[in-house]
Nucleic acid binder design. Sequence first.
DNA 1: TCATTATATCATTAAGTGGTGATATAATGA
DNA 2: TCATTATATCACCACTTAATGATATAATGA
Lengths: 118, 118
Amino acid sequence: MLLTSEKLELDLKSKLFRGFSDTSRLSILESLRIKPLNVGEIVQATGLNQSNISNHLGCLRDCGLVMSEQRGRFTYYRLADDRIDSLLRLAEELLSDVAKGVYQCTRYEVTEGANNGD
Amino acid sequence: MLLTSEKLELDLKSKLFRGFSDTSRLSILESLRIKPLNVGEIVQATGLNQSNISNHLGCLRDCGLVMSEQRGRFTYYRLADDRIDSLLRLAEELLSDVAKGVYQCTRYEVTEGANNGD
DNA sequence: TCATTATATCATTAAGTGGTGATATAATGA
DNA sequence: TCATTATATCACCACTTAATGATATAATGA
């Protein structure tokens, strides 16, 4: 059983991770690892459509993973904290070891064709 | 636009994070940070029901986040890698700063009553 | 073998969630 | 003001997913 404060932490943590748990949001975050981009640039970088990206950006911003800054007609987004990059990096390291296991996880199917050659 | 290999990485990464993105799975992982537990012990630690936990454990194991070991009639689960603990720790640090933002994210509502005192 | 205990699996249901198109808002310049 | 550009919001639909109860499997001991 969990204390209230622990439950609240769990909720926060799961929300945080949910920001990373979708390929679209993840590709947005990845595109922002290099440098801040405006929405149009994110569209180009990810190939997702504008409406979709705006929706995801809204979530990512609400969840504290990105910050936005208005410059004229453009809204520039950047990662809100260096530790977001660290989290992604750590995940990559971890994946390099357990990739097979995750790859074989059939419980949550990959949405798009993953070109899984086998 | 993304190369095939980058898309595959995205898929893997999002799957990995999805393991952390649900409060039930997260509470299972949390309970295993201390020491390996069998299913019954996880039931007690989390307050979730057995079937639910088994389902989540199946996913967590498939995704490489936990490993299981049979001991007699009991199946013991443990975190599959120290970096899983690191990821959780890093998330906690990050949250201590951006908690307000995540907390205010209304896009994905907290499933259970979070006893949010305010 | 049978009963019991521990865990896994399955089907169902209800709710969550992502993608999309249409539309709204907001900034800029003519 | 009007047109244009950049971004946000909204509603809808299809799909995903978590929780549950019932049941299956597997291990143990009587």
